[in-house]
């Protein structure tokens, strides 16, 4: 049983990322359940997806139950910590998308030190990926989500083969597939355990 909790902001391609994970698991012959909470998400709200690989019926991940938190945005990383425990690896993009409440209600966007401190106190490990930069370097600035999926694959926690992820990408990405594979590979490399 592997539980992946994907979070971010509407428009970051989180649902596509979760579908890649789900199709990869299905191609590997594993049972998988995905859920998404979106509704009005494309209007820039918080988005949550879950991917549960294994023999389970409930699509929702219990509190403190995630094996991996895969976050596409720093503030959302903090919001996801309820699903984390000392068994959880948190992989977060360093991208910041400042919500309007910071401007209008004069709330403070957390600093990197805030995020690091809170994640390290809660989780087993914290991996930071500069996904927008990696995506830009691969030639498709919109491919941050694929960089993050690459990082998830690179950790090996899902137990799925790289080939399954790459086949799943072909099923879900319609444009610039070659560049997206480069973005995925770089994410994969950054998260792979050092030899």
């Amino acid at each position: 049983m592997v539980d992946v909790y994907l979070v971010g902001v509407g428009g970051q391609g989180i649902i596509t990322a979760s579908k890649i994970v789900g199709d990869a698991a299905t191609l590997a012959g594993k049972k998988v359940l995905l859920s998404e909470t979106h509704g009005m998400a494309q209007r820039g709200g918080s988005v949550v997806c879950t991917a549960r690989i294994g023999d389970v019926r409930s699509p929702l991940i219990p509190d403190h139950g995630a094996d991996v938190v895969l976050s596409f945005e720093l503030l959302e990383t903090l919001r996801a910590l309820c699903k984390a425990s000392k068994n959880t690896v948190v992989i977060s993009s360093t991208e910041r998308i400042v919500p309007l409440s910071v401007s209008t209600q004069k709330l403070r966007y957390p600093t990197m030190e805030d995020v690091e401190g809170k994640v390290m106190r809660t989780a087993k490990a914290f991996m930071q990926i500069d996904a927008p930069r990696v995506a830009a370097d691969s030639g498709v600035p919109m491919s941050s989500n694929v960089v993050m999926v690459g990082a998830l694959a690179g950790t090996g926690i899902t137990g799925l083969d790289r080939a399954h992820f790459e086949s799943a990408m072909k099923m879900n990405i319609r444009r610039d597939l070659a560049e997206n594979i480069i973005a995925f590979s770089e994410g994969y490399r950054l998260a792979s355990p050092q030899p």
């Binding site: 009005m40 820039g44 709200g45 503030l75 903090l78 919500p99 409440s101 403070r108 966007y109």
Partner: peptide, 11 residues
């Protein structure tokens, strides 16, 4: 959740 996190409702 900690109360001090800025909210992110749809806009």
């Amino acid at each position: 959740l900690p109360q001090d996190l800025p909210t992110r409702p749809p806009v």
